[in-house]
């Protein structure tokens, strides 16, 4: 199967490109980018054909695309790819507006193409294990989850609201919500958030806390802050404490690493040795396309998480708990 990448604006594109090239059944052949310098650079690095024209790119013989453009451009790129009958793996968040996500899902459905949203943490073997423990009932009924998805401040277009849709809340709430929905098969009922810009002189929020109640009554705390110092030994974290009626589970998804005291560059570094979740996400997407299977992480999964982000912003504005009004689809 032949694959193209739409934009390398999001740095995850490099990881996806690497694993596509390693995959025995996938051929990464083309790249489109609205930054032609970046496009030409990656075309040289990965030996791809670079296209300046999106329609020409879509007609280059590819079966599927991976979309790593800036968040606000996902809508345009997903719809163009779907109209050209290409299967799609779209970087998270699915979109910056609920109406956009809804339209993207609708068009992909009309065109009969796969729309999968990239939530790679589901594919971390640690998380698969945790999901299994939770669903086995070994912890009893789940009562509460306290999670973090911390990061360092990414800079670039991530802090330009027109392109990213927002800061740390947009970037990081979605991962935790996706994992909670996936593990518990439950939906968010209400959201409260305190957001702020306290770490950097930037225009978007760089920190906050989110308090969620699920429809089942499970309570969830989320810390999506870009609060990791520049001296932190890695990019960030995904952690969870899961409290059940029969036990409590502490999870640190990226704990499998050695610690490197690096005198050569005067820094402390985590050296991860875990199975790479991006590699497994790519393998899953390739298999879904080749075997004509439904996506493992659907557009609706992307939409549900985006609704929570929007509710967090609204709650922050109102200083009140906001109840989620889910967008439903007429079938």
């Amino acid at each position: 199967m032949k694959v193209g990448i739409i934009s390398f604006a999001h740095m995850h594109a490099h990881s996806y490109a690497t694993y596509l090239q390693k995959h025995p059944d996938a051929q990464l052949i083309a790249v489109w980018d609205d930054d032609s310098r970046r496009g030409e650079e990656v075309a040289t690095a990965y030996q791809l054909d670079f296209y300046e024209d999106l329609q020409a790119f879509l007609q280059s013989g590819i079966d599927a695309v991976i979309i790593c453009s800036e968040n606000a451009k996902h809508r345009e790129h997903v719809i163009s790819a779907a109209r050209a009958k290409k299967h799609i793996l779209c970087e998270k968040p699915i979109a910056t507006e609920i109406a956009d996500a809804r339209e993207m899902i609708q068009v992909c459905k009309e065109e009969g193409v796969i729309l999968q949203v990239a939530y790679p943490v589901r594919f971390a073997p640690v998380m698969e294990n945790v999901k299994q423990i939770v669903q086995s009932g070994a912890l009893g009924d789940i009562l509460a989850i306290d999670g973090t998805n911390h990061g360092q401040m990414p800079g670039g277009w991530f802090i330009e609201k027109e392109l990213s849709g927002g800061g740390a809340a947009t970037d990081h709430i979605v991962h935790l919500i996706d994992l909670v929905r996936w593990m518990l098969q439950d939906e968010v009922k209400s959201v409260y958030a305190e957001l702020d810009t306290r770490f950097y002189e930037i225009e978007v929020e760089d920190c906050g806390l989110v308090s969620v109640e699920m429809e089942s009554g499970v309570i969830v705390g989320i810390d999506p802050s870009w609060s990791r110092p520049k001296t932190f030994p890695t990019w960030g974290d995904v952690t969870m404490r899961i409290v059940g009626t029969k036990g409590t589970l502490d999870v640190d998804v990226f704990k499998q690493h050695a610690l490197y005291y690096n005198d050569r560059d005067s820094k402390l570094q985590n050296l991860p040795w875990a199975v790479d979740m991006d590699e497994r996400l790519i393998a899953d997407f390739v298999q879904n396309v080749m075997e004509d299977r439904p996506p493992s992480i659907t557009g609706e999964d992307g939409l549900r998480t985006l609704e929570v982000v929007k509710a967090a912003y609204e709650s922050h504005r109102l200083k009140q708990v906001v109840t989620i009004n889910k967008v439903h689809f007429s079938s």
């Binding site: 305190e194 810390d223 009626t245």
Partner: peptide, 26 residues
């Protein structure tokens, strides 16, 4: 009795605090 609470505090000085209180530990 398993008893667990999550508290979020906005300090007047601006900082945001998260307090996890748990009677659900080993």
């Amino acid at each position: 009795i398993v008893h667990y609470a999550l508290v979020m505090l906005r300090m007047a000085g601006g900082a945001i605090a998260h307090v996890e209180l748990s009677w659900a530990e080993g």
